[in-house]
C-alpha cells in the first residue's frame, strides 16, 4: 500500500494548500493557495524540495497526525507547540517523523497560520490543476479526523534536523502598499492619515481577508460609494461601508464593489496574514518602482532560503529519537528548485 498521512484529530481550519490556481480569474475563481506563501517556501527549503508541493495549512490550531512510512516533515509559519511521541520538537525546522509516531501540533503561540510540509508533498488528486482547498469555491474542504491522505514520493534524499532563522512577520509592524486605480477616491489628507495611524487586526478574518480597526476615525470616500464592481486582487485594501479597511487575501473574490486605497505588496502580505487578532499594523505607501525592487529582493531571499539552513542543535534531554537521527545519512541537498 502506498504511504499515507493519517489525520487523527484536526483543528477547525486545517486544509491542504499549495501555490493555488493562477489563470482562472476570468472564470471567477481566485488563485487561492497558501495564505502565507513564504511559509510554504520555507517548508520546501527545509525539506530540499520544490515549493509547489502541497502541505497542510493549520489556522490557529494543528491536530494529531501519523504517517505509515518514515517521512521528513517541516514545521513553518505561525509557531505552534509541537511534539513527536511526546518529545517537543522545534518550529521552523525539519524533523524525521517515524512511521507510527504521533505528531501532535497544538494552538498557535504567535501568528495565525502554521504549516506542516512533508517530504514528497501531500499527493491528493489535483482539481483544476492544484491541490489547494478553495473553501469559497467548494474545492476541497477542511480536514476531518479519520481522513487519510496519500503521501508523495520523497525524491530528494535530503536530511532532517535543519532549522531556518525566523523573521519578525508574526508580530505586526509596517506593511508597504502601492497606490492603485481608486487611491484618488480618497482625499489627500485621508491618504496621509492612513499612513500615520496604527491599525489593530480585528477578530474578523479568514482566508478571504482580514478586517483592521483604525485607531481613530474611518476612511469614508464619498465617490467610492457608487463605484461599479471592479477586479480585485489579493493584497487590495478595500475600505468597507463603515470606513474600516479590509485587506484581501489568497481566497478573495475576483471582483468587489468597495473602493480600494491601494494594494499591499505580495511580499508584505504574510505580515497581515500572520497578524493575530489584536496585533498592531501600520501602512506605508511606496511607488511602483520601489515596490518592484522590494519584490525582487524578496524573491531573491526566497530563492536562497536553503543556504540559511543550519543544523538543529538538540537538547540531549529531548533526544528520544536519537536512533532515528543516526539512521539518516547523506548530505544536505542543493538549493530547492526555483519558484515557477
Amino acid at each position: 500500500m502506498s504511504p499515507r498521512f493519517l489525520v487523527h484529530q484536526a483543528g477547525p481550519g486545517v486544509t491542504v494548500q499549495d501555490l493555488g490556481r493562477p489563470g482562472y480569474m476570468a472564470l471567477g475563481l481566485s488563485r487561492g493557495g497558501a495564505a502565507d506563501r513564504l511559509a510554504l517556501a520555507e517548508g520546501a527549503a527545509l525539506l530540499g524540495q520544490a515549493p509547489g508541493l502541497a502541505a497542510l495549512e493549520m489556522a490557529g490550531m494543528g491536530g494529531r497526525f501519523e504517517v505509515t512510512q518514515d517521512t521528513r516533515i517541516a514545521l513553518t509559519g505561525a509557531e505552534m507547540r509541537a511534539s513527536i511521541d511526546g518529545a517537543a520538537v522545534a518550529w521552523n525546522a525539519s524533523h524525521l517523523l517515524p512511521a507510527g509516531a504521533q505528531l501532535v501540533i497544538g494552538p498557535a503561540i504567535q501568528g495565525v497560520y502554521g504549516y506542516l510540509s512533508v517530504s514528497g508533498g501531500i499527493a491528493t488528486d489535483p482539481q483544476l490543476g492544484a491541490r489547494a482547498a478553495h473553501l469559497v469555491a467548494s474545492l476541497g474542504d477542511v480536514l476531518q479526523p479519520g481522513q487519510e491522505l496519500p503521501l508523495g514520493i520523497d525524491a530528494s534524499r535530503a536530511e532532517a534536523g535543519l532549522i531556518l532563522p525566523r523573521d519578525d512577520r508574526f508580530s505586526g509592524g509596517a506593511v508597504r502598499f502601492v497606490p492603485g486605480p481608486q487611491t484618488n477616491l480618497f482625499a489627500q489628507a485621508d491618504q496621509e492619515r492612513f499612513q500615520s495611524i496604527p491599525f489593530t487586526r480585528d477578530t474578523r478574518g479568514n482566508r478571504m481577508g482580514v478586517r483592521l480597526i483604525p485607531e481613530s476615525g474611518g476612511f469614508e470616500s464619498e465617490a467610492g460609494l457608487s463605484v461599479l464592481s471592479e477586479i480585485v486582487v489579493p493584497g487590495d485594501i478595500q475600505i468597507t461601508g463603515d470606513g474600516t479597511p479590509f485587506v484581501l487575501l489568497a481566497e478573495c473574490q475576483t471582483t468587489g464593489g468597495y473602493p480600494r486605497i491601494g494594494s499591499v505588496l505580495p511580499s508584505d502580505l504574510p505580515r497581515i496574514v500572520q497578524a493575530a487578532p489584536g496585533t498592531v499594523l501600520r501602512f506605508q505607501m511606496v511607488g511602483l518602482e520601489e515596490g518592484v525592487a522590494i519584490e525582487r529582493r524578496a524573491a531573491e531571499a526566497r530563492r536562497t532560503l536553503a543556504s540559511r539552513r543550519t543544523p538543529l542543535v538538540r537538547n540531549p534531554h529531548d533526544m528520544r529519537d536519537l536512533l532515528a537521527y543516526q539512521l539518516i545519512s547523506g548530505v544536505v541537498s542543493g538549493d530547492p528548485q526555483e519558484e515557477p
Partner: peptide, 22 residues
Amino acid sequence: VEESTTSLISTYLRFDALSVDH
C-alpha cells in the same frame, strides 16, 4: 503575461514584474 480577465467595463492583465518591466 500571466493572466488576464475582464470586469463589467475593464480589462485586467497580470504579469511577472520581475522579468518584464512596467
